[in-house]
Amino acid sequence: MNLKGKTALITGGASGLGEATARRYHAHGANIAILDMNDERGEALVKELGSNVRYFNGNVTDEEGVASIIEATVNAFGALHICNNFAGIGSAHKTYDKKKDAPHPLDVFKRVLDVNLTGTFNVARLAAQQMASQDPVTEDGQRGVITNTASVAGYEGQIGQVAYSASKGGVIGMTIVIARDLAQVGIRCNTIVPGLIHTPLFDTLPEHIFTALENTVLYPNRLGKPDEIAMLAQQIVENDYINGECIRMDGGIRMGPR
């Protein structure tokens, strides 16, 4: 699927990996709908990138809210062809904390799964409904592409990542099922599985910790760049034979327990 003239909904698109993907898609001629909760960043991107970009404040877990944003996107651009789910949250709690003599807070566990797993599925299913109603845009009868985002923690979660790892493992697990469910209507589904990517969060770390993290990467010995994730997102859209895949983008890292 060629990006030019297509419309992409990007959750978490106001910063980090989502912003990098929005910028890359926009540079290749796509219309962009950003779903995020950061009004300042979202509105700044609209102002910078121009008239074929829209920002919507929304929560990925809100069924009616997401449906209305998809409707507004179609009203603005005429269709929806691409959905990239980047929105997510993390937590740091052990299953049982010996020092505190306390189990993992159940409300925190539920919240992480609600946003990262249920929220991803909510957006994907509603995007699929819209895509399925549209005419095909390729000779193969393709109507759309959904790309979700997991994490290497979905395979090798570290101590304290039980909620995050469970949520990302769920995203990995549902990838092939969504692809199978949507094959009959010409919609592909894949998942990007990032390793350590240099988002602004890492800039707050002391230099020795930052360097130690870089040294855990097999090669090259550095954190990944957001645009490298965006490049993969672009390739998934443009290569029509990529379907049902979970693609690690991690420099060969395999996470240790800590």
Rank of each mutant, 00 (worst) to 15 (best):
V46L: 09
G16V: 08
L35H: 00
K6H: 10
E139D: 14
D140P: 04
E139F: 08
I89D: 12
L17D: 04
N116R: 03
L45K: 09
K94N: 04
S68M: 06
E64H: 07
L117W: 01
N59Q: 04
I70P: 01
Y96F: 13
K98W: 06
H28F: 15
A8V: 14
V108F: 13
L9D: 03
G141H: 00
G42Y: 08
D114C: 09
G50A: 09
I32Q: 02
G141S: 00
V123W: 01
A79Y: 10
D114N: 10
T138Y: 03
K98A: 14
A30V: 09
K98T: 09
S91T: 13
K99S: 11
A128M: 05
V115M: 13
D36C: 02
V115Y: 08
Q134G: 08
S91H: 04
Y96H: 06
E40G: 11
A30E: 07
L9R: 00
T7M: 01
A22T: 08
G90Q: 05
S51L: 13
R24C: 11
G141F: 00
G16M: 02
A67Q: 05
H26V: 06
G65C: 02
G78S: 07
K98V: 08
P136Q: 01
R125M: 01
E139S: 10
F56D: 04
C83M: 15
T21H: 03
E40V: 13
A76P: 02
G78P: 02
G12E: 07
P105Q: 10
I82W: 11
T11I: 11
A27P: 05
G141W: 02
G18R: 03
A128F: 03
A67W: 02
D97G: 06
A128W: 01
R143W: 02
Q129C: 05
R111N: 13
N122T: 06
G58T: 03
I70K: 00
R41V: 06
N57H: 10
